[in-house]
Structure formats: C-alpha cells, structure tokens
C-alpha cells in the first residue's frame, strides 16, 4: 500500500471520529441548556472548554451564548474541528484514498458529506436541532457500518482503525484534562457530592452516562468516573480500550509486514502506562500530570506511525 494511502486512511477516520465527537459535545450543551436552571452561559463555556476551543472561539465571539457556540461547533469553516470542517476533511481524504475503500465505504462517506452539508447549509434552528444531531450520528454510523461490513481486514483497515482510536483516546483524554479540576478537589473528601452538571458533561460527552450508571448502580463518585474513562477496558471510549485497540491493529501490521517499528515500542509504553497503574496511583501522581503524559505520548505515537509507515515523502 502506498504510504500516502495509509496516511489518507488514517486521517479520514480521525476526522470522521472528530466529526462525531464534536457533534456529541453540541448535544451535551444543548441538552443541558434545555434542562438546567442556572446560567446557560456557564454551560456553553464549559462545552467550549471541553472542545479545547476557548481561544479559537473567543477570537470570533465575545459571549458564550447557545446559538453562537452551536454554530461555531457545527458550522464554522475556520474552526478545523467543527462538524462541517471535519466531514470536509474526512471526505477529502476519502477521495484521496478511494482506491483503498470499498464502494460501500466511499458511498457512505460521500452521502454523509452530502447530507451534512445540506443540513448545515444554514444555522440550525432550535426546533431542528434534535433532527440534525440525529442525522450526524446516523450518517457517521453508516460509514462505520460500511467499514465493518465491507472492508478487507488488511493493512488499510488497520490504518483506519488506528486513526479512529488515536483520535478517540485523544478526545477522551482532553475532556478529562479540561475537567480534572472538577473531579480533583472531591477526591480528598470522599462522599462529597459532585457538581452534577459537571460530571454529567464529562460522561455525556463520551456517551458514557448510561453505561456508567449501569455499572455502578447509579452511584456517582469522582474517582469512579475517572477510573471508568481511563482504565475500564469495557468502555469503548476509555484510554485503556482505545490503546489496546491501537496496540492490536499495530500488532496486525507488525505481523502482516513482518517488521517491527519504533511505533510498536511506543504503543507498548502507552499500554504499560495504563496497565501498570490503578486509579489511586494515577491520582497520587496527579491526574493532570498523568493526562499530560498520555497526550504527549499519544502525540509521539502518531508522529512515529506517520514516519514508520511513510505517510509523507
């Protein structure tokens, strides 16, 4: 496979994942603004923080009001992680690597792009929000379904999956990092009640609120949320899960090509970091420090993959 094609697949699926993550954040904000009594500006500001987009947002807007935040996250062409920018980038990469995609995956991606472009042509009105967010979720699920159902399990699939999980781990780690201060103070005082809004933001933005409740029987404890999102191998957006998947797919590449690269050592380091720690140790070390280390190391992993598999000349 061409290095360029491997890189295109990697980025196509990173962007598709990003598109979904950003949409989910909008959903969180929208829901909270609807159901909560407090100042909605705080909640929208927290959504922007979770996206890690405070600077980019404030460069364009002065206040954190719902319509501006929503429009920024869904449609802003200059914000590279907006839903529209992400799907554009995903589809651009898909065109680049079309020969490595099945017709089903290509068409699902192309249709996703057409549907989202049409739905996001104008600012989304409040009464259309549920339908539009539902459409984004549905369309990206169709691409994922086409990938699972029709692609050969070869190197191309591995690059697509590694891109997906790198982006997802990155997303979860960033959300936790932005919110760690919410979880942190309460750790010393076990049993204290968490700010419901804040923990719900965290869990909802990784689509984990139901699973978490189901697993814990409804008990909300900060250390439990952190453990769930960092170490729980059953949670498909946890750092442990994503890292294990990356290690799997990179392992397939190693076996398939008969060649071990520095990226394999790097993913092993990441996995060890999650495997060798329990949540108490992580908090002891400092949650923020731990997440910073993780983000740094996954950044190194991404760069190493790019180099080892010759994405660029």
């Amino acid at each position: 496979m061409l290095g360029k094609t491997a890189g295109g697949l990697f980025w196509m699926f990173r962007y598709l994942e990003r598109c979904e993550n950003t949409a989910r954040l909008v959903e969180v904000g929208f829901r909270m603004a609807m159901t909560r009594g407090g100042d909605p500006a705080d909640e929208w500001a927290s959504v922007i923080d979770t996206a890690g987009a405070r600077d980019a947002y404030l460069a364009r807007f002065d206040t954190f009001d719902g319509p501006s935040v929503i429009d920024f996250l869904l449609r802003d062409p200059d914000y590279p992680s907006s839903v529209l920018s992400s799907i554009e980038a995903a589809r651009f990469n898909a065109r680049l690597v079309r020969i490595a995609l099945t017709r089903e995956v290509w068409e699902a991606t192309n249709e996703c792009w057409m549907a989202l472009k049409a739905a996001l042509k104008r600012p989304v009105r409040e009464n259309e929000m549920t339908a539009v967010l539902g459409l984004i979720r549905q369309q990206s699920a169709l691409v994922r379904g086409a990938l699972h159902g029709s692609m050969l399990r070869n190197d191309g699939y591995d690059f697509a999956r590694v891109g997906t999980f790198l982006e997802r781990a990155d997303n979860t780690a960033r959300i936790l990092d932005v919110k760690y201060y919410v979880l942190l103070p309460s750790i010393s005082q076990i049993g204290s009640s968490l700010d419901n809004v804040q923990w719900e933001t965290v869990l909802r933005s990784v689509a984990g609120q139901r699973a978490y409740r189901w697993l814990t029987g409804g008990e909300v404890a900060p250390i439990g949320i952190a453990e769930f999102l960092i170490l729980d191998g059953r949670m498909p957006r946890s750092l442990a899960f994503c890292t294990a998947k990356m290690a799997d797919n990179l392992g397939y590449l190693e076996r398939d090509y008969g060649m071990r690269h520095p990226c394999h050592d790097q993913v092993d380091r990441l996995r060890a970091m999650l495997h060798d720690n329990d949540i108490e140790a992580i908090f002891e070390h400092g949650l923020h420090e731990f997440l910073t280390d993780f983000l740094r190391d996954s950044g190194i992993l991404a760069a190493q993959i790019e180099q080892d598999y010759r994405f660029y000349g």
Binding site: L2, G3, T5, D155, Y257, M259, Y309
Partner: peptide, 22 residues
C-alpha cells in the same frame, strides 16, 4: 495503485513508489 509524482522516485534504475513497506 494511484500515484502522484510526489509518491515516486528513481531507485536502482527503476521508477519506484513509496509504500508502507518501502
């Protein structure tokens, strides 16, 4: 394969494409 000029170079008297394996 679908290649662009930037994927290609001369290697040992042949035109070669940059793949994930070299």
């Amino acid at each position: 394969e679908l290649v662009e000029g930037s994927d290609l170079r001369v290697v040992d008297g042949r035109i070669a494409m940059r793949t994930t394996r070299g």
